[in-house]
Amino acid sequence: MHILLTGATGFIGQTLHAALRAAGHQVHAGVSPRSAQAKLQPDQVPMDFARDTTPEAWLPRLQGMDAVVNAVGVLRDSPARPIDAVHQHTPCALFQACAQAGVRRVVQISALGIDGSATRYARTKLAAEACLRSLSDAGQIDPVILRPSVVFGKGGDSSALFMTLARLPVVVFPAPMLTARIQPVSVHDLAAAVVALLGPALQRTGTVACTGPEPLRMADFVASLRQQQGHGPALVMRLPLPLTRLSARLGDLLPASVPWCSESLALLDSDNVSDPAEFERLLGRPGVHYSRLVAGAWG
């Protein structure tokens, strides 16, 4: 298949790109205008999720495409990557263009734990999902929405933060990290699910939660990463909630690639877990357990 992959240079997108090519697909890799300033590779397509907010901007890029995979995402708003455009307006324009161009297969990488969240991250992700469902209900496209829990792997900003915390002999956790539950999923398992949806599971539509086999508290996940690296238990201290909020506000002042900010703190108000059965059916096997993620997704 000829597949237009947006966000191809991001953490998840790079792994998707490699997996789809290994499966024999021709991948047309979307790159940002900043990347496009360098000489484009033959399989690269320049696109700007901050500005390409109309279907007309996408129709020329969809010529000859059999499917679209959207892996663009940001944690928080910034002038260069406004979250409303990146998560909602541009994806909706892309999906509408798919309907007009006859590209029926769309795979949207969304996120688990966004239902009921008041964050802009959640609201904009849900708006893109609603757009996809409306086009699907009208019989115009055949979409699948993948909702991963915390995606772990080399190159991920949150993964790097977890690994840094796991190396510290004394760690001070923001209060919600001691109670919030996650179900970490290997980035390679997520990529394998996308490959399945563009192959053996091509007829599958709807929403799939993408999780590892077992949930645990975020602080316990860091402890597991520490153990996987051969270290003994760390001394764990709790950061009081007022200081937790202050640290998140300070994170807001740092570059957008820093994963700790007020938005990520708000997302910790709800658990990020789900039944892995449907995801495992896509994979044809259980996902990588959190206790083996260092070897299976980081090494």
Rank of each mutant, 00 (worst) to 15 (best):
P240L: 04
V170Q: 08
T205K: 11
D157P: 07
D189Q: 02
S32I: 09
V103W: 04
D142A: 15
A101Q: 14
S78W: 02
A248K: 05
R281Y: 01
H87R: 12
R226L: 09
H188I: 06
L161C: 04
V185S: 08
L112F: 09
R226W: 10
A209E: 12
A50T: 03
T179H: 14
E278V: 11
F173E: 09
P255I: 01
P200E: 14
S134R: 15
L267T: 08
T211W: 06
N70T: 05
V45T: 12
S291V: 04
P148H: 08
G73A: 03
Q41L: 14
L225D: 08
R76Q: 04
L241Y: 02
Q203C: 06
L4Y: 03
P184K: 00
L178G: 06
P143Y: 03
M65E: 11
P33E: 11
T53Y: 00
G153V: 11
V106L: 11
H188R: 14
V208K: 06
H188W: 07
R167P: 01
L293V: 10
P255Q: 00
G113D: 09
A256F: 01
D275A: 00
L243N: 10
D157I: 00
A191E: 02
R34G: 13
S186I: 04
A19K: 01
V74D: 03
S186K: 02
A57E: 12
R204A: 14
M218E: 07
A122Q: 02
R238T: 14
S270M: 15
A138K: 13
I3L: 10
M177L: 14
V74S: 03
T207V: 15
P42E: 00
A19G: 02
T119F: 04
M177P: 10
F49H: 09
V31I: 06
R81K: 13
G64H: 10
H2D: 15
P42R: 05
C210D: 03
G284W: 01
A248I: 10
L243V: 04
D66T: 09
V68M: 10
V294G: 11
P286Y: 00
Q88T: 14
A248P: 01
C131N: 09
E214M: 02
P286T: 01
G287C: 07
A19C: 04
V170K: 01
R285G: 10
H188M: 06
R285C: 09
P91E: 14
L282V: 14
H231M: 10
S134N: 13
D52Q: 11
L246I: 12
G73Y: 08
A191M: 02
R61F: 03
H2Q: 15
V236Y: 11
D84W: 01
C131A: 15
L126S: 13
T124I: 00
A234I: 12
L161V: 00
V288A: 13
E263S: 13
A196V: 05
L202Q: 13
W58N: 08
L20H: 10
